[in-house]
Amino acid sequence: MIPAAFDYVEVDSAEAAIAALGQHGDEAKLMAGGHSLLPLMKFRLASPSVVIDIGRIADLSYINDAGDHVAIGALTKHRAVETNELLKSQVPMLAHVASQVGDPSVRHRGTIGGSIAHGDPASDLPAALLALGGSVVAKGPNGDRVIPAADLFTGFLETAVASDEMLTEIRVPKAAGAGWSYQKFNRRAQDWASVGVAAVRNNGASGVALVNMGPTPVVATAVQDALASGADVEAAAALAADGMSPPDDLNGDPAYRAHLAQVLVKRALTEAAA
């Protein structure tokens, strides 16, 4: 299939991207690697009249040690996240989760910023960011602001990044000694997760987030609370689907997904504790 025609605007800086967004308003979409937006455009589920190509902004592809956290430029490719030594030592789950996105060719092209800004509940990286307690930097006409991951995903394919803002950086706290696990259950290796679980356990603190268990990437609050109040893995995992509204599709109905979430949370917590 073929995208509808659009005007193409190329920018060489985040500031220029913000300016272009201001000029074109809701008609415009930012495109980085294009691996979230172009598939929608090919089916004409998205038909922006202006595409702002941010893929050539030179200084937004980086993975930096920022003291207590690692800062990742929004245009950093999945492949770079997957193979980065700093991440592998300080935030190994994020590197691993990046290796689970799509397939190798997708990972060569898709960006972490694009994936997170898209906010797809079935996507891997948003759940990892939630479980890790990360945040993002949104740049707008009035400067930068930091949005905690917990506040980022506001609705189906909607985020707290405003329409005149651009997501420029992802921040993940260092967690070198933490136990972690990413459980992705899908029918084919290249598929989105039917259900996925990202779990981090660090000195008694736990971060657990779920993939494809509702309209947004979502924290398993009930599981986290139970763990905080001393519940064992089994008991905590039984709460995995509490408050969730999982989708009904060919990969499973809500009841099956609720069960799967419990199984996968249990496996994740067990692995993270090992």
Partner: peptide, 16 residues
């Protein structure tokens, strides 16, 4: 048809 594309119609890959 609920699964006309190769996203949803699961032709297996080498990994399966």
């Amino acid at each position: 048809c609920r699964n006309p594309s190769l996203l949803d119609y699961l032709v297996p890959s080498a990994a399966e």
